[in-house]
Amino acid sequence: MSLESDNMQSIYWNENCTVFWHGISMADQAKYKSGFSYVGSTVKATGHAYMYGSRIMRRARDDIYFYNGGLPAGSTIYKWDMVYSYATAHAIPSLPLLIPGHRYYFRMLAEADVPDGLFLRLIAYNREDVMVKLQIIRGKSGIFDFPQEASYYTVELVGAGCHEVIFHRIDVQEIQDESEIDQLDFEKMHQENERRRWLAAQVVDSYLGRRE
């Protein structure tokens, strides 16, 4: 198997930040609550943040500050949905596409105010929106075998007693077995991916400039 950098993908906190709960209308509060709560199909939004009582600031693309002094343990701080229907959700996928039957290594880059204060919860579903697998990744990394019968999945950043979080990103790399993990240079792969993203953005800007 090739361990080239284009195999690795990164997951970012994509939701608009610097949000304030106070002053939001009751209708919008209900909308945020229902959007945050898991309801089954993941084609309804690109992401859900725990907004009630939270202070969330985007300091950089890979530097999100989250604080909630009353966050209950076990709460989902942020949830990523794999949106695959633009007509339904009016959004592009916020998660890497995984191949059924393949194995992936998830590596979380984040800090919390208490040791082991965060974990990842990965849930896979089939085409009928029925859950076929739920896996907890404790600590900062773990392996996720995407089931053969799975069609899509969600990723949840879950608090385990923490109240303050600095989130950077989650790196996802396909592997064959655990022995390959030590061979991965994630920082080099991330830098190469960022370089490619920058080059792609330059191409888009150049194209849009010519059209104006």
Rank of each mutant, 00 (worst) to 15 (best):
Q135W: 01
S141K: 03
Q183F: 14
H190C: 14
Y105T: 14
R58T: 15
A160S: 15
M26Y: 11
G23Q: 06
P96T: 05
Y84N: 12
E15I: 13
A201L: 14
L208W: 10
I77P: 00
D28M: 07
S94L: 09
D205M: 14
E192R: 10
E111L: 10
S206C: 11
R107I: 11
G53F: 11
R196F: 13
Q29Y: 02
E212K: 15
S85Q: 13
S141H: 08
Y50N: 00
F66H: 00
V114Q: 09
G142Q: 01
L118T: 06
Y65I: 12
I137H: 04
A45L: 10
S75H: 07
G161D: 08
E4V: 11
G40L: 08
Q183N: 15
Q173T: 05
R196G: 07
F36Q: 11
Y32L: 09
H168N: 15
S179W: 02
K188P: 01
Q176C: 03
Y125E: 10
E111G: 08
L118E: 03
W13L: 11
E156F: 00
I123P: 02
P115C: 11
R107D: 07
S2Q: 08
V83D: 08
S34A: 12
H48P: 06
F119N: 09
G70I: 00
Y65L: 13
D129F: 05
P96Y: 02
S141Y: 08
Y52P: 03
Q191M: 13
G139E: 14
G40R: 12
C17N: 14
F167D: 05
D205C: 11
S25M: 06
E192Q: 13
S54V: 01
M189G: 00
L120R: 03
I56S: 01
A27W: 02
E111A: 04
Q202R: 14
V155H: 09
